[in-house]
């Protein structure tokens, strides 16, 4: 198990290296000039050149990359080209918002999806099952922005309630913070729940048809033991795969939902930075997002190995 984890961690290094090279190159290939966006269209060519030199953009590419990387490895992501603010603290403070949103959404999703998926599998082809399947299909296919709009409209028109404007951190005012977060989390949670529900239903169904389930029943097990101790644990591997992908993606920022609810999350940071061609911020946050994504996947892999004794031997 220990060597397995070490091996998986070492595998992250080339992945992150690849991501860093890729995002570095992409930022230099896409059209648009940070100096131009800062100084405006009537800036003199000399002024533009001066600014580019200040940012080190005139240096050869490999030197630029080396400078960036040596900073990153000492946890210095550089400063924003627009605001001059340090990048890493900004990323981290936005990550707390994204993290909280992800956590609440995921909890909502799992609390709904896993029990519903199990019930649907146990009562296959019943009305309950059809209900669950329709709801999960809606959850997967209904666009977030539409759901968000509907919820906001219904709350406003029917209950004359509108969520607070402006973000407040959890540690400043927990109740206000939760009030702000709960609606976006419900929006994100329902769309996550759809996929998890489908996966839970189909993998529990598949496991219930296995020979060993018959053995467990033949031993005199109660249905509760069959489902929750044996079927669910075996079904957990594909469910975890979905969960890992969703959480990994969501931790990289939920651009649309953040935008609709004006949450200062990671998605907003990246979006703004791309629009402004703020190279350093884009590079730094993309690398950070990639790091979080692979970290979540690593955790999922460790969970796999914890659940399934066959995995660490492969």
């Amino acid at each position: 198990m220990f060597t397995y984890v070490i091996r998986r961690i070492l595998m992250l290094v080339p992945v992150l290296f690849g991501v860093s090279v890729l995002i570095f190159l992409v930022m230099r290939i896409i059209p648009g000039d940070v100096a131009q966006t800062i100084l405006g269209t009537d800036a003199t060519p000399e002024a533009l050149q001066q600014l580019r030199e200040d940012f080190g953009l005139n240096l050869p590419l490999h030197i630029q990359y080396f400078n960036w990387m040596s900073g990153v490895l000492t946890l210095d992501f550089g400063e924003s080209m627009r605001t001059g603010k340090e990048i890493l603290p900004d990323i981290l403070s936005r990550f707390t918002v994204t993290f909280e949103l992800t956590l609440i959404s995921a909890l909502i999703a799992w609390i709904i999806a896993i029990p519903m998926g199990i019930i649907a599998a146990m009562k296959r082809n019943s009305n309950t099952d059809f209900g669950v399947r329709i709801v999960s299909l809606l959850g997967v296919s209904f666009p977030n922005f539409a759901l968000a709009t509907i919820i906001i409209l219904v709350l406003a028109l029917v209950f004359s309630y509108s969520p607070p404007v402006g973000y407040v951190g959890f540690f400043e005012d927990p109740f206000k913070n939760l009030e702000i977060m709960i609606i976006p989390a419900i929006v994100m949670g329902t769309s996550m729940a759809g996929a998890v529900m489908r996966m839970t239903r189909s993998s529990v169904l598949e496991i219930l048809m296995q020979d060993f389930i018959r053995t467990i029943r033949a031993k005199g097990a109660k249905e509760r033991v069959v489902i929750f101790q044996h079927a669910l644990k075996n079904a957990m591997i594909p469910i975890l795969t979905i969960i890992g992908l969703q959480v990994g993606t969501l931790l990289g920022g939920a651009v649309i939902v953040e935008q609709i609810f004006s949450l200062p999350g990671l998605g907003q940071l990246v979006l703004t930075a791309i629009n402004q061609r703020d190279f350093m911020v884009v590079q730094g946050s993309v690398l950070f997002i990639a790091f979080i994504f692979v970290l979540v996947n690593l955790l999922i892999d460790i969970l796999y190995a914890y659940i399934d004794p066959r995995i660490s031997y492969k």
């Binding site: 060993f212 018959r214 467990i216 031993k219």
Partner: peptide, 29 residues
């Protein structure tokens, strides 16, 4: 089941739950 009448199946490879130890599965009965 398992107490007055018990059963052995054809496929020993798939008749046991892969995620639990033999001890767990035998003691379950």
């Amino acid at each position: 089941r398992g107490n007055e009448i018990s059963m052995i199946f054809q496929e020993p490879m798939t008749a046991l739950d892969p995620l639990f130890t033999i001890e767990h599965q035998v003691s379950e009965v």
